[in-house]
Design a protein around this nucleic acid. Structure first.
Lengths: 343, 343
DNA sequence: TTGTACGCGTTATCAG
DNA sequence: CTGATAACGCGTACAA
C-alpha cells in the first residue's frame, strides 16, 4: 500500500498552538472547558495542517464504537435492502453508523463476520437470514451465537434460535398468510397452491403451517402436489411453476413464499403462452418491483417503517442501558393489486 | 451502553501461558517464529478464556486497515447494489472488506462520510454518484476531494471531476446510446424520444449529447419536446411519459435514461390504457427487474463483471504499490428483449 | 481554563 | 525461537 506523509497528531497541533495536547483533545471532543479564543486558535491550526484525528486511537481509549454490525444474506435482494436502508437512516439519527456484511446465507461466512464484529467491538449486531432461519441449526451455530452474545448484544430480525435469549423482532408471517387466504376466499378461490421456499427454513415452515391451518379452517383440501418448495429466487419460482403446470388438475390461485418466486412463476407462464390471468398470484414481502411488474402483485407488506423502528428502538435502549422487551412481533398488511381476481 | 466484562488482553493470555505478550502477539499474527507446541498452548488458552483481539489497537500500531470505503447514492437501487456486491466479492478475495455509505446523492452527506473514511484510515475510497456526476461541481466539492486524496486514494466510478487526477473507471455511455440507436434504426424507427435524467448530471448530459449526435448521423430530426429530463426514478419516468403523451405528434421509440424511468413510463401507459406495444422502449443499466417486467426491457448492460474487475484491479495495484493506469473505459453491450419491435 | 502523566491493547524493534 | 521495551495517537483523572 502506498505510503502517505507522516501522520499529524494532536501533539503536532499542540506544539504549533503553544498549548497542551490535552487542550487539543478537548477541542476535538467538543469539551466546553476550553476558552473560545484558544479553541479557535487550535481549530485554525488543525485546518492549516490538514489534521485528521485517528479513529483507531480514539476507539482504543474510549473502548467503544458507534458502529452497528449488520449481517444479512444479500443486499441485492430488495427485501433486505429495504430493511437495511431504513435501519441505517434511523440509526444515523442516533449517532450510529452501520457496517454491512453479506453472508450469502453461508454459515462459515457468518462466522467470519461475527468474529470481525467482535474484534471491531461493534455496539451491537443486527442479524438477518442464514442460520437464524434454520429450524434446526447445528450446535456449533448456536454456541457461536451464544459466545458472541457474551461480548456484544445481538438483535435477530425475522429469526430465532432455540435456547438463545437475544433480542428478537419478527414480522407476523402467520398473519400475512391468513390475510392472503382470507382475501383469496373472498374472491371465490378454493384451489390454492404454495410455491417456493425451502423446508427447514423457518420462514418457509412457518408459512406452510399457517397455510395448512388456514386451508383447514375453510375446509379446503390441502394437495401435497401443489406445495412446491424450490427456493427463494426468481429462477426457483420459474422451476416451481414449471413443475406445478405438470399436474393434471391445477389450482386457481398461487401463493408465493415471497415476491421473487412469483415474478418467476409469471414469467414461466408467459414463456409457456399461458395467460397470466389463468391464475391469481400472491407474493410476500412487497418489494418495490411488485408495483411495476405486470400484473402488479397482490402481496404482504412487512410494515417496514414499524419493523425498522423497533430494531432501532432496541439499539436506543441498549445505548441508554435500559433492558426493554426482548421480543416483538410486527403486524403485516395486505396490499391488493392486479394479480388477484375473482375466480 | 451496557458494560461488559473486563477486557481480556494478550497480557492475560501471556500470564496464563507463561510466555511473553510478544509470543502471544506472534501467534495472533500467524508468525512462523513460534514453536508449534507453544503455539498450541497459547491457542488453547485463548479459546478457553474466549479471547478476542482488539482491532483498534492493531490498527493503531500497524497504521493501516483492510477497509475500503464505498460511497454510493442508494443501495436499494439495483444498479448500485449490483456493482457493490460484485466489488465486495472480489475485494474479499484480496483480503479487503468494504464499508458502505449511502449518500442519497447529497453533498453534505458525502462530506461527512469522506471525513469518516479518512478518520478510519481506510485503504482507499470508491466513489459513485453525487458530486462526481455533476457537470459543474462547486469549488468546495472539488477542493474537499483534493484534500481527501492527499490522504487516501480515490477511485471514481462513472464520474470525473475537472482538475482531479484520481483513478477513474467508467462505462462507455456514448457507446451504449449508439448501440441503442443503431438497434432502433434497424427496426425502422425514425422518431425517437429521450426521457428521464437531470441536466447538469454528467450521465444525462453525456447521453443526451450522444443521442443528438446519433440522430444527426442518421439524418433524423431532433425534437426538443421529446426530450424530457424529469429525474432518475420510476416516478420520474411516469411523469415524463405523462408529459410526452401530451404532445400532438408522438415518437415510435422511447429511450430511457435508465431502466427505472422506463418501468415508470410503461406503467403510465397502462394507467392511461395505452397498449405498451404502441412504442418501443429501451432502458439503460440492465438491472435485474428488466428481465421480469412485461414487456421485458431491451437495455444496455454495463458489463458488470469487467467494470467491477477493473475497480478491484486498481485496489490491487494500490495494495502492491504499483501505479497503474488512472483511467479506464468499459465497453457496454446491448441486451435485446421484448420491449423493442419493428415499427 | 489549562497542563502532567498515564493507560488503552496491540505490534515493531532489537537483543538474546 | 523468545522476551523486554518502546511505540502508535488519543482521552482523562488529577493537579494546578
Amino acid at each position: 500500500m502506498i505510503k502517505h506523509k507522516k501522520n499529524i497528531t494532536i501533539y503536532d497541533i499542540a506544539k504549533k498552538a503553544n498549548v497542551s495536547p490535552t487542550t487539543v483533545s478537548r477541542v476535538l471532543t467538543g469539551s466546553p472547558l476550553v476558552k473560545e479564543s484558544t479553541r479557535q486558535l487550535v481549530r485554525n491550526i488543525m485546518d492549516e495542517v490538514d489534521f485528521t484525528p485517528n479513529e483507531a486511537a480514539r476507539n482504543l481509549i474510549t473502548k467503544q464504537t458507534n458502529t452497528i454490525g449488520f449481517i444479512l444474506p444479500d443486499i441485492t435482494n430488495p427485501f433486505f435492502s429495504q430493511v437495511y436502508i431504513e435501519v441505517e437512516r434511523k440509526a444515523l439519527e442516533l449517532g450510529f453508523n452501520i457496517l454491512l456484511r453479506n453472508s450469502m446465507g453461508r454459515s462459515e461466512v457468518e462466522s467470519q463476520y461475527l468474529k470481525e464484529f467482535t474484534e471491531k467491538r461493534v455496539a451491537c449486531i443486527v442479524f438477518m437470514g442464514g442460520r437464524i432461519n434454520k429450524s434446526n441449526p447445528s450446535d456449533q451455530e448456536v454456541n457461536e451465537i451464544l459466545e458472541v452474545m457474551n461480548k456484544v448484544p445481538i438483535i435477530m430480525v425475522n429469526g430465532k434460535m432455540k435456547g438463545v435469549n437475544c433480542y428478537r423482532i419478527r414480522t407476523n408471517e402467520e398473519m400475512g398468510i391468513d390475510l392472503i387466504i382470507d382475501h383469496l376466499i373472498e374472491l371465490g378461490h378454493k384451489e390454492i397452491a404454495l410455491i417456493g421456499g425451502i423446508k427447514g427454513i423457518t420462514s418457509t415452515d412457518c408459512k406452510t403451517v399457517a397455510f395448512k391451518r388456514a386451508m383447514k379452517k375453510y375446509n379446503l383440501k390441502f394437495i401435497q402436489d401443489w406445495v412446491i418448495p424450490t427456493g427463494f429466487s426468481i429462477e426457483d419460482g420459474k422451476a416451481a411453476m414449471k413443475q406445478l403446470l405438470q399436474n393434471k388438475q391445477l389450482p386457481t390461485a398461487i401463493l408465493g413464499i415471497n415476491d421473487l418466486v412469483i415474478y418467476g412463476a409469471i414469467r414461466e407462464c408467459r414463456e409457456q403462452k399461458i395467460p397470466t390471468s389463468t391464475f391469481s398470484f400472491t407474493g410476500f414481502d412487497d418489494i418495490f418491483p411488485s408495483d411495476i411488474v405486470h400484473p402488479s402483485l397482490t402481496t404482504i407488506n412487512h410494515n417496514y417503517d414499524i419493523l425498522t423502528s423497533e430494531i432501532v428502538k432496541v439499539i436506543q435502549n441498549l445505548k441508554d442501558g435500559k433492558v426493554g422487551i426482548k421480543g416483538k412481533i410486527i403486524d403485516t398488511k395486505l396490499v391488493i393489486r392486479e394479480s388477484t381476481r375473482k375466480v
